[in-house]
């Protein structure tokens, strides 16, 4: 019996999240794991948008910024529970993505890349300059989620690192599961069809603009939730989270691992999150190594690391 891509990906993720801690020599690795999962979640959104619908966004960090600052501001100003602030951030991101995407995605081509680039920069500027609200470039403290204390009362005592590792892992798992369900749904098929040929998709009666818009909104929610998780975990957030480089990082992770595959994208997130930790010894050459890795992957493994390797393995068997 052959496993479907969906069950193989989910099983792989579950095994990874559950078993990896057995190999952790210290609490620090929980932190790295949690970061990988947070980045993996954002990158899963990129897979839906870029890998399946074929649209490119260079402003997704803006949505992460909205998610992060929702968690920083809503509990203080409106007395909202941080968990609800995550939902609020996701809602605001979705509405904004809809407003930006609706006029832009009627056009054919790469207009979304430019529009989202501008949008991301605007969000970052607002976070930097609206000092009365966001406290500006020095950043702002974020309220405690409080879930860890609840778990402790229920008899499950986790260290801070462990708690965020498993929470982020579970959210990533849920995110990957939803994305993989979408992949096999009529909407997912339609998205992949329009990626293949927009003209053909239109000819068979698909509402191309609406489909692209759906993908953009969904991926914005993924980015927003990842930003929220980062803010709640760090308990402190600066406008850097919405910066242009963070947007580029998300796209790079997806492309490196394989933008058409959820598992591949999460793998890309893992590599690019781990590299700076492995490369601390030659921190000065970190950018150089990253660049070289990207160039080599683009030349030799054009679909991204995971899909290319899988193809090679299958190609040998078939």
């Amino acid at each position: 019996m052959r496993l479907t891509v969906k069950s193989a990906t989910l099983l792989g993720l579950v095994a990874l999240i559950a078993l990896a801690p057995l190999f952790f020599p210290s609490g620090f690795y929980y932190r790295v794991g949690a970061l990988i999962f947070v980045n993996g979640l954002a990158v899963t959104g990129i897979v839906i948008l870029t890998g399946w619908a074929g649209q490119i966004s260079l402003g997704h960090a803006g949505f992460a910024g909205i998610g992060a600052y929702a968690c920083a501001l809503a509990p203080v100003h409106w007395g909202l529970h941080p968990a609800l602030a995550v939902v609020l951030g996701a809602g605001v991101s979705a509405v904004l993505a809809w407003l930006v995407g609706r006029p832009i995605l009627r056009l054919k081509g790469y207009y979304l890349a430019v529009a989202s680039l501008g949008m991301g920069i605007l969000i970052s500027m607002v976070l930097n300059n609206e000092r009365a609200l966001t406290r500006g470039p020095d950043g702002i403290e974020v309220a405690e989620l409080g879930l860890r204390a609840v778990l402790k009362d229920a008899g499950l005592e986790l260290s801070n690192g462990q708690f965020w590792y498993f929470l982020c892992g579970l959210v990533l798992l849920a995110g990957a599961w939803l994305a993989l369900n979408l992949h096999d749904s009529p909407t997912g098929r339609a998205l992949r069809a329009l990626h293949g040929s927009e003209v053909a998709a239109r000819t068979v009666g698909m509402d191309v603009a609406r489909l692209k818009l759906q993908a953009f909104v969904i991926s914005a929610v993924y980015a927003s939730v990842s930003g929220s998780l980062l803010a709640l975990q760090n308990k402190f957030i600066t406008p850097d989270v919405a910066g242009f480089m963070h947007s580029v990082e998300m796209v790079t992770m997806a492309v490196l691992g394989g933008v058409g595959s959820v598992f591949g994208a999460i793998f890309g997130a893992a590599v690019l999150t781990l590299l700076p930790q492995v490369l601390t010894v030659f921190a000065e050459y970190e950018q150089l190594v990253l660049g070289a890795v990207m160039v080599l992957v683009m030349i030799f493994l054009r679909e991204g690391v995971v899909p290319s390797i899988l193809r090679k393995i299958r190609g040998g068997g078939e």
Partner: peptide
């Protein structure tokens, strides 16, 4: 100069 990295490194210094 990235606060997120600083937090990771601080965790590494303390835990590892």
């Amino acid at each position: 100069g990235d606060p997120n990295k600083a937090r990771t490194f601080a965790t590494r210094l303390v835990e590892d």
